[in-house]
Simulated assay, not measured.
Amino acid sequence: MSLRRRLPWALLALLVLAQIGYPLTAGTTRAGLTVATVVIGFGLSVSHALLSRGPRTAAVLVAVTTGGGLAVEACGVATGFPFGGYDYAGTLGPKLLGVPLIIPLAWTWMAWPAWLVAVRLVRGAAARIAVARIAVAAVALASWDLFLDPQMVAEGHWTWLDTDPALPGVPDIPIGNYLGWLAVALVMMALLSAVGGGRVHRTDPVDAPMYALYLWTYASSVLAHAVFLGLPASAGWGGLGMGLVAVPFAVALIRARRR
């Protein structure tokens, strides 16, 4: 098996082990494991983009999602736009412009599998297909925050200044935050589509680790929130929201294997 196939699977296995350990720890150990998980996830997505699509695509991915993630988070902390007013605690390591450095890495971690899942689900070269692909990719990324924000707020990593209105059962995060995520995700995916071009659109069996990452994130998040983290409402909302993409994607993969 070549390096481009071995390395993503190895990093995915390491990521899964780190996430399994998350509910078994607490305090500073859990915070350290959170940072390590994000770094591994970032390395997984960027290395996969590099090995499967080449340095240009990897550079575009980092510029759009890491650089863009830092810019939008810094704007959010300073102005409250586009997510609403919030503050980061000092629990996630060093900050730049008021934003923990691992936060923009997290955008990249999930943006790449979200994009590839959309590429697999929405195929074709027509303009309307490209628009649909961007929309699906944006939902695939933004819906992840239905799990992420409740979990991180419960751990005290950041807090919201105004939480009204909020989703039922998730009172500590404003609905506007999720809408902000969707807007940012749409811009990111549009840029990946426009700047990345055809090489980003190409699909290949080598993308299997990213498919597995997305489906693992969905299934493990539902389980963790419902059973281990005491967050049943976010398990439900995340299960519904991320399931809009994850469930049809899983069905499509199962059908493709039966052909």
Rank of each mutant, 00 (worst) to 15 (best):
V119A: 15
V170D: 06
L179N: 05
V200R: 05
A185K: 04
A208Y: 02
P174D: 07
L167Q: 02
V170H: 00
A118G: 08
Y178V: 11
G124H: 01
R133C: 12
P171V: 14
W216R: 01
A142W: 00
T108L: 09
W115F: 13
I173R: 09
P205G: 02
T159Q: 01
D145A: 08
G169A: 13
F147A: 13
L96D: 09
A118N: 07
T163K: 01
T159V: 13
D207I: 14
W144E: 04
A132W: 03
P94G: 06
W158A: 03
Y178M: 09
L101D: 01
A111K: 04
L213E: 05
A183G: 11
V187R: 04
A106T: 08
V99G: 04
V187C: 09
I134H: 02
R202K: 09
V131G: 01
L186T: 13
A132L: 15
W107L: 13
A127F: 09
D164L: 13
I175S: 05
V153G: 02
V187Q: 07
L121Y: 06
W112T: 05
L192G: 08
P205V: 13
A127L: 15
P171H: 09
T159G: 13
V99Y: 00
L116H: 01
I103T: 11
L179V: 15
W112F: 10
V227D: 01
S220P: 00
R202A: 15
L215G: 05
R120I: 04
V136M: 12
A114N: 02
L215P: 02
A111E: 06
I103P: 06
G169L: 11
T217I: 12
A127T: 14
G169M: 12
A126P: 00
D207V: 12
R123M: 06
